[in-house]
């Protein structure tokens, strides 16, 4: 099921934001960066988390499902494309429905934009910009076998839990060997954040 895709390993990420700048260089959305780079452990450590579109497979692309204008196309290779410019009405349904917090919206242009796996590059067999330049391999593009050739014994997971729901994705994350059978927590339900009850 897992073909050539991005593998994310936040443990290797140094938070340098090369991906953020590189995303801007991609010809399909030049000047606009789609990738997110967050420092989730603010105040405690310099840990960082890059977020590209996870290209959800099951359910297939919640963003596309909630789109009232049928603007988000999922191509046969499983890539969830960014909104069709002629159709998108800028309602932000996808922005808020995405469990991973991926799509962005240009309010003036009434247009959603999101990571399209650098379709202009991947369609020709090139790696996406972010994974090409990532200095650490926190973003890796290739097959699982290619990843294992570089990192012997690495394990990945492509299922995330959000409360009672499981979302399987086209993009995978690296997990420790003893946690392969687990589902990766998506962050929901949340009871406590940094020691503060947010319920």
């Amino acid at each position: 099921m897992m073909g050539r895709t991005i593998f994310i390993d936040p443990g290797r990420c140094i938070g340098c934001q090369a991906c953020v700048s590189a995303c801007r260089e991609c010809d399909s959305h030049r000047g606009k960066s789609m990738i997110h780079l967050d420092y989730p452990d603010e105040g405690h450590s310099v840990a960082s988390l890059p977020t590209v579109c996870m290209h959800c497979e099951d359910p297939v692309a919640p963003c596309a499902e909630v789109c009232p204008a049928d603007a988000i196309l999922v191509t046969a290779d499983g890539v969830v494309q960014q909104a069709d410019t002629t159709r998108c009405i800028g309602c932000a349904n996808c922005v808020n429905a995405c469990p991973f917090g991926v799509p962005k919206i240009d309010l003036q242009a009434k247009l959603q934009m999101k990571c399209n796996l650098c379709y202009d590059r991947t369609a020709y067999g090139l790696a996406p910009m972010c994974a090409t330049v990532c200095p650490t391999g926190a973003l890796f593009y290739g097959t699982l076998d290619e990843l294992r050739a570089e990192r012997p014994g690495v394990q990945v997971a492509d299922s995330f839990t959000f409360g009672a729901t499981t979302v399987s994705t086209g993009v995978a994350m690296v997990v420790p060997a003893d946690k392969v059978q687990w589902l990766v927590p998506g962050g929901l339900p949340v009871v406590e954040v940094n020691g503060v009850d947010v319920r």
């Binding site: 936040p10 988390l49 954040v193």
Partner: peptide, 10 residues
């Protein structure tokens, strides 16, 4: 959402 997911991962 991303920060919470990042924290859950950490």
């Amino acid at each position: 959402k991303r920060v919470l997911r990042g924290n859950a991962y950490l």
